[in-house]
């Protein structure tokens, strides 16, 4: 079984995308054999009221019966908004969303701000996963309107230290150019927490260069139980993420099944079908 933990629909203001709706995403998933994808609506990053984007996503899901069992919806929640608790509760209870994605750089807050910690605490209490993309695009190709930095592992660890019993997914998980080194203390915090790192940016073959980091880095530092398959669609080509994990020889095929889906299913409390 294949489960993609890193997919989006919606619009991106800085370049045009393809395959950025559930219908086109499902075609891709069917062609490549992806059973399920965790998906959120990019519009929620840019709308003042991100809850409208969550409502759009639910409406799109309900527009075709073929979508029902294939997509796992995550809510985009901005803890700066005075109505974030209402939004979270609606997404959980009415929409059946199993997690949230948060974008502190785009919504202008820090992961350790009290409002963010309160949000993560509320998500934890509802059994929802907290998903944090370290970045949305390569900063070197950013628009002048886009954010100019990425979230570091140290940033995430600072949050995890305050909320160690929440469940986390770190997307775009890699060590990027110029990013601050991860401290030993941060590594210890992340190793001990219930965290999954997605495979979208790591090379499957053995290589280490200025812009290349092998999945071996994740394996050696966090272990196969903390890795989860992600595609980063629709930002990047849909083939490469499969080639990355497909040619990766650091783990045997049985263990690799955990990465393709098992680890994410466990975190989501979902059965294999």
């Amino acid at each position: 079984m294949l489960l993609d933990v890193n997919a989006f629909v919606g619009h991106w203001p800085y370049r045009n995308l393809r395959g950025h709706n559930l219908k086109e995403l499902l075609k891709r998933m069917n062609t490549y054999g992806v059973d399920k994808a965790i998906v959120s609506n990019l519009n929620g990053i840019f709308y003042v009221d991100g809850q409208i984007a969550n409502e759009e996503l639910v409406a799109e899901l309900n527009s075709d019966p073929a979508f029902k069992n294939r997509f796992i919806l995550f809510a985009t929640i901005n803890p700066v908004l005075p109505w974030w608790r209402d939004a979270l509760e609606t997404c959980h209870k009415e929409f059946g969303m199993k997690g949230i994605r948060i974008f502190p750089l785009y919504h202008h807050y820090k992961l350790t701000d009290e409002s963010c910690i309160e949000l993560v605490k509320a998500a934890r209490d509802l059994g929802m996963v907290v998903s944090i993309p370290l970045r949305m695009t390569d900063l070197r190709e950013r628009s002048w309107l886009d954010v100019d930095k990425a979230i570091s592992y140290n940033d995430v660890a600072a949050l995890v230290a305050k909320m160690p019993d929440a469940k986390y997914m770190i997307l775009e998980a890699r060590i990027t150019d110029g990013q601050e080194p991860t401290t030993p203390e941060s590594m210890k915090i992340l190793k001990e927490a219930d965290v999954l790192f997605d495979t979208s940016r790591g090379s499957g073959v053995v290589v280490k260069g200025p812009n290349s980091e092998s999945l071996t880095y994740l394996l050696e530092n966090f272990g196969a139980d903390k890795m989860a398959f992600g595609t980063e669609t629709p930002f990047v080509d849909y083939s490469s993420p499969f080639l990355r994990l497909g040619v990766f020889k650091g783990i045997d095929e049985n263990t690799k099944q955990k990465v393709w889906s098992g680890n994410a299913l466990r975190m989501l409390n979902m059965e294999k079908n």
Partner: peptide, 14 residues
């Protein structure tokens, strides 16, 4: 440029 999977993947996907 040492990016093997994306090197091949982007051509396959285009």
């Amino acid at each position: 440029d040492m990016n093997y999977e994306t090197g091949v993947g982007k051509i396959m996907w285009a």
